[in-house]
């Protein structure tokens, strides 16, 4: 699901396993709670260990982008596996410059 670490104003959420509509709300509430508490300058979502994602993951990223913007920070999405990038490419998220 998600492992989180905080260093130098960067909150890194290391996502792992499968992201779907069942899991996404659980990840969302863990990340949002930490964000509100720590108010990081950067929220970094690391997809390196994600083995599967459907469009629920796109909703998750879009929602975190809104959430961190409201808190005055910015979002970065890193280490996106090829197959997962295929889902992101349908979303227009690549045009927001958050996908690294």
């Amino acid at each position: 699901m998600v492992d989180m670490s905080y260093k130098n104003d960067i909150l890194t959420a290391g996502l792992y396993g499968e992201i779907d509509h069942h899991i996404a709300p659980k990840i969302r509430s863990e990340i949002d709670a930490k964000c509100e508490n720590l108010r990081p300058k950067v929220l970094r979502l690391d997809f390196k260990a994600v083995s599967f994602m459907d469009s629920s993951g796109v909703g998750l990223v879009m929602g975190r982008q809104r959430c961190i913007s409201l808190l005055g920070g910015r979002l970065e999405v890193v280490n996106i596996p090829k197959q997962i990038n295929k889902v992101f490419s349908l979303s227009g998220l690549d045009k927001l410059g958050v996908l690294k």
């Binding site: 996404a24 709300p25 969302r28 459907d54 469009s55 629920s56 796109v58 909703g59 998750l60 879009m62 929602g63 295929k86 889902v87 349908l90 979303s91 227009g92």
Partner: peptide, 22 residues
């Protein structure tokens, strides 16, 4: 239609777009 959703939750509205693309 891509991005169309009736859901108020964090749904991207991409379900059918993914099906059609894949």
């Amino acid at each position: 239609e891509p991005l169309f959703t009736t859901s108020s939750d964090e749904r991207a509205g991409l379900g059918f777009a993914v099906m059609q693309s894949f």
